[in-house]
């Protein structure tokens, strides 16, 4: 049987399945943990509506808490308030950068359908720090990331889009 504090400690070590350098708590998707009726009730919010990792994440959370000694784990998915990249912790943003993914910066896409042209905000390359970078595609390997290229070190990199 785990206390809420112990449960949080366990969850701090559960990695995001697609970006394993950060944990599900650093990603900001674990919203609440309650000890209840001898078990645990965990509230999780999805990142993107269609994120294929959502079910894997719920299972990882369940497995980790059961392995740590909890008999009953209920994982509830809650939509509101909607997840935002602003909930990614500051240390996690540094881990993203070290992993080669530019962390989210600035504001999310706003307004209606105004074309943003092909000169979006200059991002710093997570490898060499140069801001001489160009966007290759608004969608990278997952919906949450865009694909960029550094003109200075010539390496491609991904950008975790603000949402």
């Amino acid at each position: 049987m785990l206390t809420e504090t112990q449960a949080w400690d366990v969850l701090h070590a559960v990695p995001d399945p697609e970006i394993p350098v950060i944990s599900v708590t650093e990603l900001g998707i674990v919203r609440e943990v309650h000890a209840r009726d001898g078990g645990l009730h965990v509230v999780v919010t999805p990142t993107y509506s269609g994120c294929p990792a959502t079910e894997v994440i719920a299972q990882s959370i369940r497995d980790a808490l059961v392995a740590a000694g909890t008999a009953e784990v209920e994982v509830e998915t809650r939509l509101a308030p909607a997840w935002t990249t602003a909930w990614i912790t500051e240390p996690a943003k540094e881990k993203l950068r070290a992993y080669g993914i530019a962390p989210p910066s600035g504001d999310a896409a706003v307004g209606g359908a105004q074309p943003i042209r092909f000169v979006p905000r200059k991002l710093a390359c997570p490898r060499c720090g140069s801001t001489d970078t160009t966007r290759l595609s608004q969608f990278g390997s997952t919906a949450c990331k865009a694909l960029y290229r550094c003109q200075s070190c010539l390496e491609p990199f991904e950008y975790f889009k603000p949402i």
């Binding site: 939509l79 509101a80 909607a82 706003v110 307004g111 105004q114 608004q138 889009k161 949402i163």
Partner: peptide, 19 residues
Amino acid sequence: AIAAKSLKEARYHAQHAGD
């Protein structure tokens, strides 16, 4: 609640297609 999630995604879709 569904609208709040979907809106953020729709904005990226509209930008992408608008471009």
